[in-house]
Design a protein around this nucleic acid. Structure first.
Lengths: 221, 221
DNA sequence: TAGATTGTTAATCGATTAACAATC
DNA sequence: TAGATTGTTAATCGATTAACAATC
């Protein structure tokens, strides 16, 4: 009995984030983007059925994904677009500013810094680093490229929550370690290499080479 | 009996590529990269056990992935690194040149054109397009930026097999349609938008915004 | 031969889809 | 009320992992 009650308390404590799978999480931004498009078009309500057709997805999956986070819809009616957008933003923590450190001021880094600013104001690149003396001190947008030796302290002092690695593979692990030392817990890596992070750090690697090579499989078939 | 023989013939025709799942295919470039690292370090043989530790993967999964494509290993010994690399390159069609058209000569496009050349010589960007009159005619590496109005005919005439979309979301569908008209069957899209392609075209979308937003979920937890 | 490791079948796990009662 | 659509449980599908006979 004691065991059971402890177990239930623990479940209650974790509440809604009771291990939502990554597959679900990665679909949320897709829903968000679509909902924003619909709102811009002046649409006010949508059913999972309609959304399924528009996004080429199974309507049951859409309903189930939403239901993990509460009851957003109205039976017989569908989902209110504005409310749905509000909830998706909240779930993804995009209802408040998220500070990001971007490491690497090459073409990819510059592309990313433009991109992120345009697309989603709440994810804000607060600091940009490189180790090239020629680049350090130059302006990119409204950011100044800083020496990588300040990476750790800047992340820590400014409470930066996310790191983006856009440097060559050879130095990616070093950059990654510095981010972790600076208390960054969520890292997006674009370098084509397998990075090692402590268990408490979330790392996602997505690199061009791997994507292209995987797609090459489908050629000539 | 006639039906059965037809069915078997069809299976035989599909042979080894009898629907290997995308999850498997996407791991192949990871194996390839690792095997190349090992070879560069002068290592000649590896077991699925060792590889599992190094890549933080289940050894049974590694063996099963390889086994879809034949018997590469030696029982009691492991896999010959050089032979494994050879086979992975062959499976991914990286043993011959693959012609790529890159659309978008912004920072992302330039980053991609550097990247792809360095990493894997066989995936070759053969043509680069943009619709900005200022960029058209300029050199990027050893490529000249061409007007997008030549996209379709160039892809068709030069037998380009893969397309990369690195343009803003607003024009991505138009670019995509032109690639398809030019007989390109495999497309990697970096624009944050849901593109429509005919069934016979393989499309993979990977965009920064979606990745960042999905990762934002894991912040503050 | 003894020890190691593959290739493959069976068991498990997890994610997607179908079905339907609840209800707007 | 009748028709529509959600939220959720059950069924299905697919992918991962364990286990082990075959064999180097």
């Amino acid at each position: 009995m004691v065991n059971m009650s402890q177990h239930m308390e623990r479940d209650y404590g974790l509440e809604k984030d009771d291990k939502i799978s990554n597959s679900v999480i990665r679909r949320l931004p897709v829903y968000l983007r679509h909902v924003q498009t619909l709102r811009a078009a002046g649409i006010q309500t949508i059913s999972s059925q309609q959304m399924g057709v528009q996004l080429d997805m199974n309507p049951a999956q859409i309903r189930k994904d939403f239901a993990y986070f509460g009851e957003f819809g109205r039976k017989g009616v569908g989902y209110d677009i504005e409310y749905l957008e509000h909830m998706l933003l909240q779930i993804l923590h995009l209802d408040r500013q998220i500070g990001v450190a971007l490491v690497g001021a090459g073409h990819l880094g510059i592309a990313l810094s433009n991109y992120a600013r345009f697309q989603s104001e709440r994810i804000t690149i607060m600091a940009l680093f490189d180790n090239d003396p020629v680049k350090i001190g130059t302006h990119i947008g409204d950011l100044i490229v800083q020496d990588m030796k300040f990476l750790r302290e800047q992340c820590h002092d400014r409470n930066i929550e996310m790191g983006i690695i856009a440097v060559p593979a050879a130095v990616a692990q070093d950059v990654c370690d510095r981010l972790v030392e600076g208390q960054v817990r969520v890292i997006l890596n674009f370098a084509p290499t397998n990075l090692r992070v402590p268990k408490h750090v979330i790392l996602r690697t997505t690199d061009f080479t791997t994507e292209l090579q995987a797609l090459a499989y489908y050629i000539a078939r």
